[in-house]
Amino acid sequence: MIQIKNIYAGYFGREVLKNVSFDVERKDFFGIIGKNGAGKSTLLKIFSNLLKSYKGNALIDNKNLESFKSKELAKRLSFLPQYSDMSMPFSVVEFIMFARFPYMNMFKFPSKSDYKAIERVMGFLNITNLSERKITELSGGEKQKVLIAQVLAQETDIIIFDEPTARLDIGSQNNILKLLRDLNEKHNKTIILTIHDLNAAGEFCNKLLLLENGSICRCGTPEEVLNCKDIERVYKTVVVVKTNPISNRPYVIPVSG
């Protein structure tokens, strides 16, 4: 569905991605892992057409990203950045309503169907009770849910997340990932995310891409990618890889000493 072909990209003369090629199939739960600075965020920016100056091709269903009109693309994929500005005192409904922009007219007036779409999304995430609260007054967890509601309200089949679990405790992390898995399995969304936690990546994703210094170290199933040799080389640390007895997914154990 999404094809990345021979991408070379960088900023200010510094090459960040070198000859990256891979595919993301429909309904993949696709995790991108790697060290800081390996090029994960750059790759996401190329996916979401935020970075437009690169060599190579990025295609969705065989159509080059370049040839998509912004509005058209906004109906195909949505993006949740790592940091979101929630400093303006909009109400939750007003904030989520922004996601409907691609469906609105020139002056962006919401229609009945836009309000219905938002109701559905808030119901799905159990945040209907937060409708009239100001986003500036929400707790961290509530803000997270509102941000996810915002991408969901955009009703795209591809959703891209940049480090959605970065600063969360293990409980919250699992909840978010379970939610994403729901979206993937029950609602047929293609999910692409960057993630730090290798074990969470192994547990939830059906495909992983391990980036090393801007190139692909390995791309495939978690079992293929989370192998001792590659992990040790990329992260320069000693690890042991075992299999989770309940889910049969691989997990990575750090070894001290």
Binding site: L50, L77, F79
Partner: peptide, 8 residues
């Protein structure tokens, strides 16, 4: 980032 991915 958000505004652009919303088609603006």
């Amino acid at each position: 980032e958000k505004a652009e991915t919303l088609g603006n």
